[in-house]
Nucleic acid binder design. Structure first.
Length: 268
DNA sequence: AAACAGTCCAACCGCTGCGTA
DNA sequence: GTACGCAGCGGTTGGACTGTT
C-alpha cells in the first residue's frame, strides 16, 4: 500500500537552512505557536517539509536551548541515564533542560562513547569490556519477593498500558544477576511493583522496600520536593479495575496513570 | 601550502505509535 | 477492526571544520 509522502519533495528545499528561512520559521512560531507541522511550511512561506521545520525548531531555533559544551555533571547524568534507558535519547533529553535528543545523541556518539571505552567500559552495556557477555533475561529485578514479583507481573500483563511498563522494565533491568543499582550506586532507579508504602514518616527519607533501602526516581535524581517525588505520595495502582494490580501499588520511574511520563519530571 | 584523516553536528530517512474516521 | 494521516523518535549520512603529516 504505500503512504503519500509527507511533502511534495519536488518543491521543497533540502540541506542547510538559511538565515531567512530561520527567521520565517521563528516569526511564524512566535505568532502561531508550535504544532500543525504539516501545514506550517505553506503557512509560513517556507519551501520545506513539515518534518524539516519541526526538526529545525526543536534542535536549533527553540529559545530555551542551551548552547555550548556539556558540563561534567551533564556527562555523568547522561551516562547514568543511558545505562538505565538505553538509546532513548528523547527520554534522556527530557532530564537535561535545554538539551535536545539529537544533541545528546551526537554527544554520546562522539564524546561519551570514547570516554567510556577509555575507562574500559562497554558503552552499550555499561559493563567492563573484559567481562564475558551474559545471556540477557527479561526477569525484572524488583525488591519485592519473587512470588510477589511474578504475581505482580502476571497481573500487569493483562492490560495494554501495563504491557508498556513491563517492556520498559524489562528493557531497563536486563538481568536479575546485575541489578542496575550496582552499576549506578548513586542513581537509584529501583523498580517496584509492590504494596504502596503506608508509613512514610519522613519525606525523602529512604524507605524500606522488601529489606532494601531505596529512593523514588525523582529523589534519586536529586529532585526532592519535585511534583513527581513519590516519597511524598502514595502512588496509585495500575489501573483502577485490576484486582491483582490493586494490591500491587507501583512507583515506577515517576509514571502516572500507567503512562510513561519521564518528561513531566522537572529538573531543578 | 596541499593532501589527507579524523571529528563534529545539522539534517535527512524510515519506522513506529497514536488518534481518528 | 482497519486504513490512514500525522507527529515523534532513533539511526544514519554527508558536508564543514580541524588537526596532522
Amino acid at each position: 500500500m504505500g503512504r503519500s509522502p509527507c511533502c511534495e519533495k519536488a518543491h521543497t528545499n533540502k540541506g542547510a537552512w538559511t538565515k531567512e528561512e530561520d527567521d520565517r520559521l521563528i516569526a511564524y512560531i512566535r505568532t502561531h505557536g508550535e504544532g500543525c507541522w504539516r501545514s506550517l511550511p505553506k503557512a509560513a512561506g517556507l519551501l520545506r517539509c513539515g518534518k524539516s521545520c519541526r526538526l529545525r525548531w526543536i534542535n536549533y531555533l527553540r529559545p530555551d536551548l542551551k548552547r555550548g559544551n556539556f558540563t561534567e555533571e551533564e556527562d555523568e547524568l547522561i551516562i547514568k541515564l543511558h545505562s538505565l534507558l538505553g538509546n532513548k535519547w528523547s527520554l534522556i533529553a527530557g532530564r537535561l533542560p535545554g538539551r535536545t535528543d539529537n544533541e545528546i545523541k551526537n554527544y554520546w556518539n562522539t564524546h561519551i562513547r570514547r570516554k567510556l571505552l577509555n575507562r574500559g567500559i562497554d558503552p552499550a552495556t555499561h559493563r567492563p569490556l573484559n567481562e564475558p557477555a551474559q545471556e540477557a533475561s527479561t526477569t525484572i529485578s524488583f525488591s519485592t519477593t519473587t512470588s510477589v514479583k511474578e504475581e505482580s507481573l502476571s497481573s500487569v500483563k493483562e492490560e495494554s498500558n501495563k504491557e508498556k511498563i513491563i517492556s520498559a522494565a524489562a528493557f531497563i533491568c536486563k538481568e536479575e544477576k546485575t541489578p542496575v543499582q550496582e552499576r549506578c550506586p548513586d542513581l537509584n532507579l529501583e523498580l517496584r511493583i509492590s504494596l504502596p508504602c503506608q508509613n512514610q514518616p519522613d519525606r525523602h527519607q529512604a524507605f524500606k522496600t522488601g529489606g532494601s533501602t531505596s529512593l523514588c526516581f525523582a529523589c534519586s535524581l536529586g529532585l526532592q520536593n519535585s511534583k513527581d517525588c513519590s516519597c511524598s505520595v502514595i502512588v496509585g495502582t495500575i489501573g483502577s479495575s485490576s484486582s491483582a494490580g490493586s494490591k500491587t501499588g507501583y512507583d515506577f520511574l515517576g509514571m502516572k496513570s500507567g503512562v510513561l511520563d519521564y518528561r513531566g519530571l522537572e529538573m531543578k
